[in-house]
Design a protein around this nucleic acid. Sequence first.
DNA 1: CATGAATGAGGTTTCATTCAT
DNA 2: TATGAATGAAACCTCATTCAT
Lengths: 187, 187, 187, 187
Amino acid sequence: MGTREQILDEALKLFSEKGIKETTIRDIAKAVGITEGAIYRHFESKDQIVYELFERYSDELYESLKKVLEKHTGTEERFKKMVGVFLDFAFKKPDAFRYMNIFHYLRGKEVKKFKKIPFALLRELVLELHKGKILKVEPEYALAMLTGTLERVFLYRSMGILKDSKKEVKEKTASLLWNALVECERS
Amino acid sequence: MGTREQILDEALKLFSEKGIKETTIRDIAKAVGITEGAIYRHFESKDQIVYELFERYSDELYESLKKVLEKHTGTEERFKKMVGVFLDFAFKKPDAFRYMNIFHYLRGKEVKKFKKIPFALLRELVLELHKGKILKVEPEYALAMLTGTLERVFLYRSMGILKDSKKEVKEKTASLLWNALVECERS
Amino acid sequence: MGTREQILDEALKLFSEKGIKETTIRDIAKAVGITEGAIYRHFESKDQIVYELFERYSDELYESLKKVLEKHTGTEERFKKMVGVFLDFAFKKPDAFRYMNIFHYLRGKEVKKFKKIPFALLRELVLELHKGKILKVEPEYALAMLTGTLERVFLYRSMGILKDSKKEVKEKTASLLWNALVECERS
Amino acid sequence: MGTREQILDEALKLFSEKGIKETTIRDIAKAVGITEGAIYRHFESKDQIVYELFERYSDELYESLKKVLEKHTGTEERFKKMVGVFLDFAFKKPDAFRYMNIFHYLRGKEVKKFKKIPFALLRELVLELHKGKILKVEPEYALAMLTGTLERVFLYRSMGILKDSKKEVKEKTASLLWNALVECERS
DNA sequence: CATGAATGAGGTTTCATTCAT
DNA sequence: TATGAATGAAACCTCATTCAT
């Protein structure tokens, strides 16, 4: 793998573990096995690494979600698949997922620069349900519940609080949210 | 107000806006209107400020939640009041609430040092529902949904995405969650 | 003397000896007898030192020249006094004079930011002679000769090529230039 | 043109625009269209480029001046031709001329290493006038005026302050200096 | 209690130079 | 000859902390 990729990889790992400011260029260089100066042959600044990482994974998740939206037509199916894709991404690239959350938290306003924000697709999905008049709650609340739950489910699983298999987690979370927002399971 | 209090106040504001590492002792001193050295008359280190703030607001929220638990007996009432107290705190002390989240994110493991974690009470509440066999989903998932939704609802409201009054937000969120986790609203 | 002044003093000395880029913050700190970090309590950046020095001495020379212009009225007297003031400044603050030349050379276009440029006064003086119809050559050429000669006279004297006393140098240069630009000495 | 020549050319351009220290090997490489490493195939070090450039143009100007001295015999003719050659060089190779001045300024003492310094010829010329007893002022002052005026005339013309054609500038400067140093124009 | 100057460790960045390919 | 990655020293700058006053 190219050095550039390695730098991004190690930076992601460290950023997601320790935080962005807490991670130094030296940390990254050491993890890659090169000197600090070498990093600057590949990136103009630390900030560029920070942004490039966000853009890269933001795009990736965005595209995955987009594909699902295009592929499936049934409302319930679309919804549940989206949840699955979201969690899939989180499980496969936990560092990236954690990192994106940190980034969001600290750079709230700057995020608008980025075009392909996964969040925007979740928003669309919710509005679609709302138009179809099957959403039980106002869309803003639904969005809050959707994104909040997804993040926490991932978090709890990575902390060991939630012990189900990835597949189970995806399925349970999907129907949990579907029921909460749309349908109602008879008890 | 004493200088000590002012330092904590301004630190909280800055931490919640810019992040902890991003806020310097100088920033805090300037905000209070004293010099850097003076801060060390009141606190041994920056870290002490960081911890003391967390402890202070963690305790405060914890005690508020505790009181509600002790006061009310009906299950639904307890649940909905808890949600209300949680959001009340977030609305009244948004900096503190935001700060507690940042703190959590960056200091995951160190949090265990603290005794009175509000999170623990939410956990208890959920387990209680579970014991009463009225929880529709497994408690870990319920907890994820509960905490995640609460955080996002606050976040979206402070970002202007959610425009309801505080009272409305509290009521809607409470029943939204109650329905999602326990009961089922007939559509 | 305050640390701030010392920093400016030592910086000036070093800049004029070695050049601006060739002088490091560490050089300056060592010369003053403090650490590098301490410099930043007094100046925001190296560049600020560079600018402040230029402004300070530029202003000083400007004001001296201005005073002479206001005090004397006879054309020849004004001219010769100006030359004297210029060289006086160069002899008294050779570092400053040398520095101002280096600064000019490297920052040609940025100099326009500064308001009180001594050069502007020399220009005025020459234009005045021109209006009085006593200038033998076109004003632009006169200005070139005036400034060029002044700089070199100082340079050669500080290099030991020119060995006259300061007083002699001032007098000789003044009449040399007066004769060259205005009058003509009968050989 | 060979790569070596291109390197010298671009280096000269950059040095004269931004200064020597301010120009990096990378800048030069980029301007030439090769990589940094490649430069070291042609030059041992950056300093070698710096010295070689100075030597090259110093020699060139020196030889041009020498030729004029050998070709012409009349005192006034020699003087005026010298001035012309000097300015010719400055107009044809403005980068080289500017660069030589920067070099002089920053490396004052090291310049003595070089054998063929144009300055030395101007010095000879002035001493010759002095021996012929036609110099109105002491030779050191004459030299200061001569070199200072030449440099500034070039500078002002390249800055657009002086708008005459090259030919005019050369002629005017030559007689201006001749009159100032030797003869006296009847007003 | 507070100030203001200073320290010193450590951060980001720059850049001449080297070297395997 | 040239490339492109890397080095390593040194530059500028930041900041928690200390300390004399």
